[in-house]
C-alpha cells in the first residue's frame, strides 16, 4: 500500500467505516446462523474498501445506488445501522418499513436512493439521477455500484453510452469480485476485461486495487471532479473478492476447489489489515485501532438489540405504499 498524503483524520474515518461494515456483516452472518434472520443476505465481507473509499470521496448530497450486496454501501454513505439491522430483521422500524429486507434498502436522507437485487437495474437509474442533477445544475454526482456480473446485462452497455453521450455526472463503480454466484468470470466472458467497455463508449476507465481503500478513494475523487466539471461519466473497476458465499454466512467452498486457494490469497489482502498498517506507519497506536474495533462492535450490538426489540409491521398494513 502506498504512503498516503491524505490527512490522518480521513484515514481514521476510512478505518472506522470499514471496521463497522465488517463487524456489521459478521453479526448478520451469526444471526442468520442462529436462525433469527431469514431474509437472504449477500455479505460484503472482503469488499469493504470499495464502498468506503468511494463513499468517503463523495458529498452527503451525492447519490448512491446499489444491488443485492449493499449493506456496505448503506453504511459507508452514512445510513443508520439501527434501521438497516431492523430492516434485515423485518421490523417496522427498518429503513424500508420491513417491506424490503436485506435486498431492498434505502437511506434517502444520506443520498442512498435505493438498492435492488435485479442485477444491473440501478445502473440506468443512477444515470437518470445524474441527468436530473445536470438539468437542475445542482452539482451532485450519482454513483452506481454493481458487480462484474452486472456488466453482462444490456443495461450496462446501453447506459454507459447514454451517459457518455449526455455527459452525465455519473460514476460507474464495478466491484469485480470474480464471481457471479457460482460462475467464475472466465466462464462468462472471454477475458477479464470489463474496463475495456469504457473506451468503446468514450468513457474513461481505470482498474484499481479494490482492496486498497486509498486508491479507491483517489480514483473516485478524480472521477467526481471530472463529473462536477461537466466532463461526463467515468468507469472505475475495482478488483476484489468476496470472502463468504454468494448468499448467506457460509464460505461457499462448493463452487470448486480453485476457490479455496484463491480465498487464501485474498484473505492475505484484507483491506482492513492493510489500512491498519498504513495508520500504524503514520504513528497511530494499535490500542487506538483496537478501540475503534470495540466501538464498532458496540454500535453493531446495539443495532441488533434495537432490531430484536422492535415490533414487526402490522399485517393490516400490507397494502400501504402500493401507490
Amino acid at each position: 500500500m502506498p504512503d498516503s498524503a491524505l490527512p490522518i483524520f480521513l484515514l481514521k474515518r476510512m478505518y472506522r467505516t470499514m471496521v463497522l461494515i465488517r463487524r456489521f456483516e459478521e453479526q448478520v452472518a451469526d444471526r442468520v446462523t442462529a436462525g433469527e434472520i431469514k431474509t437472504p443476505c449477500h455479505l460484503y465481507i472482503g469488499q469493504e474498501a470499495i464502498a468506503t473509499g468511494a463513499c468517503l470521496a463523495l458529498e452527503r448530497e451525492d447519490y448512491v445506488w446499489g444491488g443485492h450486496r449493499s449493506h456496505g454501501h448503506y453504511l459507508a454513505k452514512g445510513g443508520d445501522p439501527n434501521t438497516l439491522m431492523a430492516e434485515i430483521y423485518g421490523k417496522a422500524a427498518g429503513c424500508a418499513g420491513g417491506r424490503g429486507g436485506s435486498m431492498h434498502i434505502c437511506a434517502p436522507e444520506v443520498g442512498l436512493l435505493g438498492t435492488v437485487p435485479l442485477v444491473a437495474a440501478t445502473i440506468p437509474l443512477a444515470a437518470g439521477a445524474a441527468l436530473a442533477s445536470k438539468m437542475r445544475r445542482d452539482r451532485r454526482v450519482s454513483v452506481a455500484f454493481f458487480g462484474d456480473g452486472a456488466t453482462e446485462e444490456g443495461h450496462f452497455h446501453e447506459t454507459i453510452n447514454l451517459a457518455a453521450l449526455y455527459r452525465l455526472p455519473v460514476l460507474f463503480v464495478c466491484e469485480n469480485n470474480l464471481y457471479a454466484s457460482h460462475m467464475h468470470i472466465l466462464e462468462r466472458r472471454i477475458a477479464d476485461n470489463i474496463a475495456e467497455a469504457g473506451a468503446a463508449h468514450g468513457v474513461p476507465a481505470t482498474v484499481v486495487d479494490g482492496n486498497d481503500v486509498l486508491v479507491v478513494y483517489e480514483a473516485t475523487r478524480a472521477a467526481t471532479e471530472r463529473a462536477r466539471q461537466g466532463l461526463g461519466p467515468s468507469l472505475i473497476e475495482c478488483s476484489t473478492y468476496r470472502w463468504r458465499g454468494h448468499v448467506g454466512p457460509s464460505w461457499d467452498m462448493d463452487v470448486g476447489l480453485k476457490r479455496k486457494d484463491e480465498l487464501q490469497e485474498w484473505l492475505a489482502r484484507d483491506p482492513i489489515a492493510r489500512l491498519a498498517e498504513v495508520l500504524i506507519g503514520r504513528g497511530v497506536g494499535r490500542e487506538e485501532l483496537e478501540n475503534v474495533d470495540r466501538e464498532c462492535l458496540a454500535v453493531v450490538e446495539a443495532a441488533v438489540k434495537f432490531a430484536q426489540d422492535s415490533p414487526y409491521p402490522d399485517p393490516g398494513e400490507v397494502l400501504a405504499h402500493v401507490l
Binding site: 431469514k38 431474509t39 423485518g90 421490523k91 417496522a92 427498518g94 424500508a96 420491513g98 417491506r99 424490503g100 429486507g101 435486498m103 431492498h104 414487526y312 409491521p313 402490522d314 399485517p315 393490516g316 398494513e317 400490507v318 397494502l319 402500493v322
Partner: peptide
C-alpha cells in the same frame, strides 16, 4: 394475491 408487491417481513408475508 392482493394487488401489491410481495413484502419481505414475515408478518407481512403472512398477510400477503
Amino acid at each position: 394475491l392482493p394487488d401489491a408487491p410481495a413484502p419481505s417481513s414475515r408478518s407481512l408475508e403472512q398477510a400477503y
